[in-house]
Design a binder for these strands. Structure first.
Lengths: 205, 205
DNA sequence: GCCTGTGAAGCTATTCACAGCT
DNA sequence: AGCTGTGAATAGCTTCACAGGC
């Protein structure tokens, strides 16, 4: 199975290729894409092996074909719906971020415990009370949740989502979730990031 | 030099240990901490070798000592100041997140191009116009910036910050920054995370 | 000449497995 | 008996380096 790192880089290559396409470029060499993505040419070529796209010696890779191949690889066949749990500053930022970016992957519903938010629409996304999570996950066929609640609510929300059949969790709460093996969890912990930057910023002369 | 992964896990262990300390635990075994952090006991023990903390067979590690050792390792000797660039939803969320969390690592200033934000205080953090970045980085001895601007502003802000002497960048903008080797950059790209969760959520039977 | 595709080498990270301690 | 600390083994990732093609 394709490693996480590779899938992550494919996502990055895709966005760089979209820029290139917008600017009218038809072809790109591995060393150019590597520079744009912040990695090495050999790595780009190896990663692209997994999407079975093939370049030519003369012009490198065809931008449009490559976008197609990466899309075929990364995107679901049918559109995939996600839900956001916890409509704070971070949750709102994420809603704004993804609005209409990928037709095959969209945030279909947002949940919060605050009654003043319920019934409103944020960035085109309807807000529901936490209590409706199971019903709406089922009704909208939601397979992914993004958790942006405070730390103390995260596990309970995750449990409900998993019980309702969710298969992937993107967790921004600074806790380690206890989740069954067959559900994919990606943690994004800003405290870790900042402490790491602080640490390494002091290591260079 | 200590690998990034290890530094990240130390940050996680620390927060789990803080919970344990709050709950009154005095000692912890590697397998307990491993479960709390979502990794394996052998990895915990190996990671803890780098902070030169040493456990006992009978009771495992002493929570307070371990917190001390990790702090000595991770924290700067003098307090380290960061600046936030781009006061949108994400920026505000981050300000709220870090307010008063670590005495040795704090966000001293926030910057934005929107004049209505200038002069206000958010989560205890004063807001300045972008144009004052160099002066305030110098005046407050800021060594880290957190970039939460839209994609198209990120490189320009990063260039200014680097020119002003910043040594670490935490970048949330979905672009690959071109930055000198001696400045540490950590990228956190939510699009990548979500696409990855979407991809792997489909791979399990 | 300068590219891609890839076997093989080199490197990094994780996990095993056990000696040594209490 | 059950833990830590760690050499050694394994697994995973990146980079080299070159054959093959235009």
């Amino acid at each position: 199975m394709t490693p996480e790192k590779v899938v992550g880089r494919l996502s990055i290559y895709r966005r760089r290729l979209e820029e290139l396409a917008r600017q009218g470029f038809e072809n790109v060499f591995s060393h150019v894409l590597a520079k744009m993505a912040g990695c090495k040419p050999a790595q780009v070529r190896r990663d692209l092996m997994v999407v079975r796209s093939t370049g030519s010696t003369k012009h490198g890779y065809n931008v449009r074909e490559l976008l197609q191949s990466i899309g075929d690889f990364l995107d679901p066949r049918e559109a995939q719906a996600a839900a956001l749990i916890g409509i704070g500053g971070l949750g709102r930022a994420i809603l704004g971020y993804f609005e209409g970016r990928r037709p095959k992957l969209f945030i279909a519903a947002a949940f919060d415990s605050d009654p003043t938010k319920i019934g409103t629409t944020m960035n085109g996304c309807p807000c529901y009370p936490d209590s409706q999570l199971p019903q709406i996950i089922a009704a909208d066929n939601i397979s992914i949740v993004i958790i942006t609640t405070p730390a103390d609510a995260a596990q309970a929300m995750a449990d409900i989502a998993v019980a309702a059949g969710v298969k992937g969790i993107l967790n921004f709460a600074p806790v380690t979730l206890k989740i069954p093996e067959d559900v994919f969890v990606e943690n994004s912990d800003m405290t870790v990031y900042l402490e790491r930057v602080a640490y390494f910023s002091r290591q260079n002369p």
